[in-house]
Simulated scan of single mutants.
Amino acid sequence: MPTRSQGKRVLITTVPFGDYDDSPIELLKKNKVDYTINPLGRRPTENETIELIKDFGILLAGTSPVTRKVIDAAPYLRLIARAGIGLDNIDLLAAKEKGIQVTYTPHAPAPAVAEFVVGCMLALLRHIPQANQDLHKGVWKRQVGRRLADCTVGLMGVGSIGKLVVKYLQGFGTRVLGFDLRQSDISADERNFQWVDKEKLLRESDIISLHLPLTQATRYFITCKELGMMKPEALLVNTSRGGIICEEDLFEALQSCKIAGAALDVFEKEPYDGPLAQLDNCLLTSHMAAASVDCKRAMEMGAVQEVLNFLTGKPLRMTVPQEAYKEQERRNGHV
């Protein structure tokens, strides 16, 4: 059993934390919480997390690996508060076996990610990255592009982020197709929105944007087969998880102009240093779609509030749904 002090100690592995808005740190200080921020200044590896976590009862985590090995190395751990939406980096089953509660902040990053997605679409359509590169090299070349109003956008995944993308695209008058493994309650009324199957979305969309969680069902959801169904002028945007796209297949498709371009904010291995960086028709960013000041603050404050709820014996607000545990069981072949 943890001692009183060890059970209440908080390790914050997500960095930067409180750098752009110190409200989360001030809230911890106000409540006299004993916390330590990851001293590495970057996302820790599994082994580094194992070394850091040994004497802590609460983990406020970002995207760093919280594996079974990490959990086994944390005898006092009783709460994992995820600042963000993705859960693929946390071994939920190992946490459950140890009686460790897990929370997350699924709605906090949505506005920032949705805006970022639309920004990527505009950048690709109007060739903004290429024009910037040309002018920095002293080349004056006017790029001719396409308008969002004239495009059909296909959304694979229409959850909290996908719904906001639909909302933002309404202002452009864009036709939107939606596909999801589980259709949500989004209304098609006056939205230029239509539910379709995966194949129809791939064949008819000018831009495809991915908003799926990384699960057994969605790993390598986009491979050479799906890329081959897309229009040669089509664009692909991914701000969800890197493992949803086969990066080798995407490289081949972009290099051979089977599709026109892509914008990727997430990768199978991060930081990314792979061959896609060699391609001018691939816009790459460093997993920053959710990193607006307000949404980062909302994620951090949401996670801190769950820490305070836990420490004061109040109900946790956003515990991970049972479906997420069931999905990991399916992935591990337990069911």
Rank of each mutant, 00 (worst) to 15 (best):
A73V: 10
A73W: 00
A74M: 09
A74D: 05
Y76F: 11
Y76G: 03
Y76V: 05
L77C: 11
L77T: 10
L77H: 09
L79E: 11
L79A: 12
L79C: 12
I80P: 07
R82L: 12
A83G: 13
A83L: 04
G84F: 00
I85C: 06
I85A: 07
G86H: 08
L87K: 10
D88Y: 07
D88P: 04
I90Q: 08
D91T: 12
L92A: 09
L92W: 05
A94L: 06
A94V: 07
A95H: 03
A95K: 06
A95F: 01
K96E: 15
G99V: 09
I100R: 06
I100Q: 07
V102D: 08
T103P: 08
Y104F: 13
T105I: 06
P106A: 13
A108T: 07
A108W: 01
P111W: 02
P111H: 02
A112P: 01
V113C: 08
V113G: 02
A114V: 06
A114E: 01
F116T: 05
F116E: 01
V117Y: 03
V117A: 05
V118Y: 03
G119K: 07
G119C: 07
G119F: 02
C120W: 00
M121I: 11
M121H: 05
L122R: 12
A123G: 01
A123M: 01
L124I: 08
L124F: 02
L125D: 01
R126S: 03
R126L: 04
R126N: 08
R126K: 15
H127E: 03
P129W: 01
P129E: 11
A131C: 10
N132R: 14
L135F: 05
H136M: 13
H136I: 03
K137I: 04
G138F: 03
V139G: 07
V139D: 11
W140A: 10
K141L: 11
K141S: 11
K141P: 00
R142W: 04
R142S: 14
Q143A: 15
Q143H: 15
V144M: 10
V144Q: 07
